[in-house]
């Protein structure tokens, strides 16, 4: 086994050590990835307690399933996949989060365009809270695509590996999720205004 200091060992190479019962390797992986897993779970659930539970579930699975980790695979992607599954299981158990809006409506960007700077204000604290709630209000599969790609800034390929679907599927979910998010933000920015039901704009330039 490699005797390099653990800080120099890649995530992939930590896995066999963890499988062999190396305590320090497990601690190293946890310290490297805990924040990412926690943030993902927090964005998905909106509840710190649930996010903490998800982190615990993820790393308990890691310690028991490390021996099944196949060499040559990305440990980070594997970890993200576990995190995604744990978060979804937790959400399905709880179902105490924000009600989901109907996502069958199309369009929304004309309304966004009518308001000169509806999103600019959102960089402020209250705006950020509004965005957070809007993300939580997205249907689950759009939410996880937005969280992975726009909040955690993963590539489509990385997100596809974590979710276990095609890259094209992730891309379309991100696009659709952003569209729904824009509609929610417009509704939130102009109280009393329902999410616009406008067909997608079209031009023939």
């Amino acid at each position: 086994m490699d005797d390099s200091p653990l800080t120099l060992v890649g995530d992939d190479d930590l896995m066999p050590r963890i499988a062999a019962g190396d305590r320090a390797a497990f601690a190293e992986l946890y310290r490297r990835r805990r924040t990412e897993v926690y943030r993902f779970a927090l964005h998905m659930s909106g509840a710190p307690a649930a996010a903490e539970d998800v982190v615990q579930d993820v790393f308990v699975i890691v310690m028991s399933a490390a021996k099944r980790f196949r060499p040559g695979r990305s440990a980070v992607a594997w970890l993200r996949g576990i995190a995604r599954n744990c978060a979804r299981q937790r959400l399905e158990r709880d179902r105490t989060f924000l009600a989901l809006d109907d996502d069958t409506q199309g369009g929304g960007y004309e309304r966004l365009a009518l308001n000169p700077e509806p999103v600019a204000d959102l960089t402020k604290a209250e705006g950020i809270e509004r965005v957070r709630k809007a993300v939580l209000g997205l249907p689950l599969h759009y939410r996880e695509a937005i969280v992975l790609c726009d909040l955690e800034e993963m590539s489509y390929a990385e997100a596809a590996e974590a979710i276990g679907c095609a890259v094209g599927t992730v891309r379309s979910r991100v696009h659709r999720g952003r569209e729904l998010l824009a509609r929610k933000l417009i509704s939130a920015a102009v109280p009393g205004t329902a999410a616009p039901k406008v067909a997608g704009g079209r031009c023939f330039a």
Binding site: T35, R39, H43, E52, G127, I128, R132
Partner: peptide, 15 residues
């Protein structure tokens, strides 16, 4: 930009 602001605001969150 809005989503990046949210990501930045939650970057320090840790278990």
């Amino acid at each position: 930009a809005t989503l990046r602001a949210l990501a930045d605001a939650t970057a320090a969150n840790a278990p």
